[in-house]
Simulated assay, not measured.
Amino acid sequence: MKRFCFDLDGTVYRGKSGIPSAVEFIHRLQAEGNEPFFVTNNSSKTPDQLQQALTAIGIHAKRGHIYSSALSTAKYVAKNYRTAKVQVIGADGIRYALEAEGITVSEEKEVDVLVMGIDRTIDYARIADACLTVQRGAKLIGTNEDIRFPTEDGFLPGNGSFVWMVANVCGVEPLFIGKPSPVMLEMIAEEHGLTRDELVMVGDNYDTDILCGINFGCTTIHVNTGVTSSEIVKGKPTQPTYVVEDLSKVPHL
Rank of each mutant, 00 (worst) to 15 (best):
D153H: 05
T73R: 05
G15H: 04
M1G: 09
L185S: 09
A189P: 06
G102R: 01
S229E: 03
K2M: 10
T219K: 06
K75G: 06
E24M: 06
R63A: 11
L98C: 00
Q52M: 10
I214S: 13
G58T: 05
Q51W: 10
T133Y: 05
F216G: 00
G154M: 03
R148E: 14
G178P: 10
S68V: 07
I188G: 08
V23W: 06
E186L: 05
F155D: 04
K45W: 03
D153E: 11
Q52L: 15
T219M: 05
P157W: 00
I210C: 07
N144A: 00
S72Y: 10
D197R: 07
A138Y: 03
N42Q: 01
A56F: 01
I57G: 00
A78G: 15
V12R: 00
D146E: 02
G217H: 07
R3F: 06
I147E: 13
T83A: 08
L29H: 13
T208Y: 08
E191K: 14
V227S: 14
S72C: 07
G178N: 14
A78L: 06
T219L: 07
R196Y: 07
V200H: 08
G102H: 02
F38P: 01
K179C: 03
G193W: 04
G58D: 02
A22S: 12
Y242V: 12
S43N: 03
H65P: 15
Y206C: 14
P237T: 06
I103R: 00
E101S: 03
A70W: 03
K2G: 10
A128I: 09
Y96D: 11
Y67A: 09
T83W: 09
D204T: 09
V105K: 06
F149H: 00
K75N: 04
K179Y: 04
V77Q: 13
S181F: 15
L211D: 08
I127R: 10
Q30L: 11
V202S: 13
N41F: 02
V200Q: 12
Q51V: 14
P174N: 05
L156R: 15
S43M: 00
G18E: 01
G102K: 00
D7I: 13
Y242Q: 13
K249H: 13
I188C: 06
C131K: 04
S230C: 08
T220K: 04
D112F: 11
R28H: 14
I210R: 02
I214M: 07
S248N: 13
Q87L: 15
D92A: 14
V23F: 03
H222T: 04
A70R: 14
R120S: 13
K236N: 01
D7G: 14
V200L: 08
N80Y: 08
D92C: 00
F216I: 02
C212R: 04
K16A: 09
T238H: 11
I59N: 13
K249V: 10
E35T: 10
R3A: 12
N168I: 08
I89S: 01
L54Y: 00
G58N: 04
N224Q: 06
K249P: 13
E35Y: 09
T241L: 15
E107H: 12
V23T: 07
M116D: 02
V12L: 01
G171S: 02
G93N: 00
